[in-house]
Design a protein around this nucleic acid. Structure first.
Lengths: 151, 151
DNA sequence: CACGCGTTGTTGATGTTTCAACATTCGGCG
DNA sequence: CGCCGAATGTTGAAACATCAACAACGCGTG
């Protein structure tokens, strides 16, 4: 398209709100988690995702997709979490290229200690302000947006 | 609260979707803008906000609030944008502590060159997938969330 | 088997953000 | 006026993200 159409008033208003949320929400989540645990939200999500996996263990690529991050970013993050003793790299039994990230007992303990405060913050920032209808509608919208984000 | 309640299934599903969007959307916006202009989305927002201000000029603190960022982050960003010749610091006439950020002609030209591609990306990621009703509902939700994020 | 290509994951350099510490100025109050 | 607390910005170091380059392995084909 040579002359892409601009956003109309409704779209622009929505976009400005969304842009603000994209800026402020991660900052708020990071702040709370860093105060309580010393790690940012992206790192917390890695621990949380692993804790729900069988054997608390996942392939790097699968973990990256589940968290919605890059392999490179994940690799750096795992290195950092490994140095704190919360994660451990393991060789993949079926694929010699592969690495698995394994959540240690110490990592699980840290996660469980951090979870209540984090959930409270998610409530304070989001669900305290929304009705059940709001949540259903919001979820319908996110379901429409996620496919394009995953490519 | 000593035992904060966990998220129910609807809330947890919504939260996982939101977390994915918070991770993927900024990454997608950054990627497009960096390819086209070499600057991340947070920097683009600074230029865009300034372009709509009288004299294309704003106090640092006001600009930080408008964009939804930190004064420190803004200061670093302005330094970087200034080195590219797209911004200029000016002394504030009424307050000797103050600094004003002024968008230069070169900065405006860069912004106007980047805008079509950026808008197209915002459309591709968001508005192409939503009906007018979706947008209205989404905006109603964001309106409920923003106050808590602003404190 | 051997070649080539796609996948998997890491690394190092560079750019950006965060946090704490600091300098400067404003504004109110004794 | 002179002092003190608050507000305004900047800076440097450390943490984190991005990007391109790279090594190692899997898999299919000839």
């Amino acid at each position: 398209m040579s002359t892409p159409r601009w956003l109309d008033d409704d779209e622009m208003g929505a976009w400005l709100d969304i842009a603000q949320i994209l800026m402020l929400m991660p900052a708020a989540l990071d702040r709370q988690l860093r105060e309580d645990t010393g790690i940012p939200h992206a790192y917390y999500q890695i621990l949380a995702t692993l804790s729900a996996a069988p054997d608390r263990c996942m392939r790097m690529t699968d973990l990256a997709k589940a968290v919605g991050t890059t392999l490179s970013r994940l690799s750096h993050a795992v290195t950092s979490l490994e140095q704190r003793g919360w994660l451990q790299r393991r060789a993949c039994p079926t694929d010699k290229r592969g690495q698995m990230a394994h959540l240690t007992d110490a990592g699980l303990a840290t996660l469980e200690a951090a979870a209540p405060g984090h959930v409270a913050e998610v409530r304070r920032l989001i669900f305290d302000h929304l009705t059940a209808d709001d949540i259903a509608q919001l979820r319908a919208v996110t379901a429409k947006l996620l496919p394009a984000l995953h490519q």
